[in-house]
């Protein structure tokens, strides 16, 4: 066997290989695998939560995250090293979501509270074995209400608040993800938070929480 042949085999080991060798990675692929695991796999929980928020369904979220990683791994060479990998993955997930689900999704801004209830129940069933899930915390009315308040916002406000406050992305990263100028992101955050505040205040009053701002002069 000449060198050319060996080289050829290692660059496409999945082709024409004996079954015992089919899972052997080339050196280049090993490096890629290692880099991918270090850079990308650690963001799986954040991606899963984002996918849950978008799809409101654990099975769809599962598929969406899986497809996102498949695509990301395939195109990992196009990831610009030194930039935020989490932002890159979120962008892929969002694009996937638009292509796959959004055509049939609910109208932005409209909230189906039954859907949210179902979502909580289904996610609770799926995750009931998870050691990270504190049942008391989960059932807390406060958290449900905050979740519902956030979900009741128009899609464009909800999205930027999620990306900024929950995921901690910068304005520049968010602007890139939602394909709008930074000024738009800023004003959506401002208006979204204002709207959210009035919804949370309503809830707080209803349940006897103190809404006075003690620090106000």
């Amino acid at each position: 066997m000449n060198i050319y042949r060996i080289k050829n085999m290692s660059s496409s080991p999945h082709k024409k290989n004996a079954p015992a060798q089919k899972n052997i990675l080339s050196e280049k692929e090993k490096i890629k695998q290692q880099e991918f695991q270090e850079e990308a796999v650690g963001h799986i929980n954040a991606l899963y939560n984002y996918a849950l928020h978008l799809t409101m369904n654990p099975d769809d979220a599962h598929d969406l995250v899986q497809e996102t990683y498949l695509k990301a791994y395939k195109f990992f060479d196009s990831f610009e090293k030194g930039t935020n990998c989490k932002a890159w993955l979120f962008k892929i997930l969002k694009n996937n979501y638009i292509n796959k689900f959004r055509k049939n999704a609910r109208e932005p801004g409209k909230v189906d509270y039954d859907l949210i209830k179902d979502f909580y129940h289904s996610i609770k069933d799926t995750q009931s074995d998870s050691e990270d899930l504190n049942a008391g915390y989960f059932r807390s009315l406060m958290h449900d209400e905050v979740y519902q308040a956030l979900n009741s916002l128009p899609e464009e406000f909800k999205e930027v608040i999620q990306l900024c406050d929950i995921e901690g992305f910068t304005y520049e990263e968010i602007a890139n993800m939602v394909e709008s100028p930074i000024g738009t992101v800023r004003s959506r955050l401002y208006r979204g938070r204002k709207l959210l505040r009035s919804k949370l205040n309503e809830f707080a009053k209803k349940h006897g929480y103190n809404t006075d701002n003690e620090e106000t002069p």
Binding site: N45, P58, F138, L150, I166, L196
Partner: peptide, 12 residues
């Protein structure tokens, strides 16, 4: 409030 109160799930 959003940062602290939104429940986070662990990926299965």
């Amino acid at each position: 409030i959003i940062k602290e109160k939104i429940t986070r799930f662990k990926a299965p």
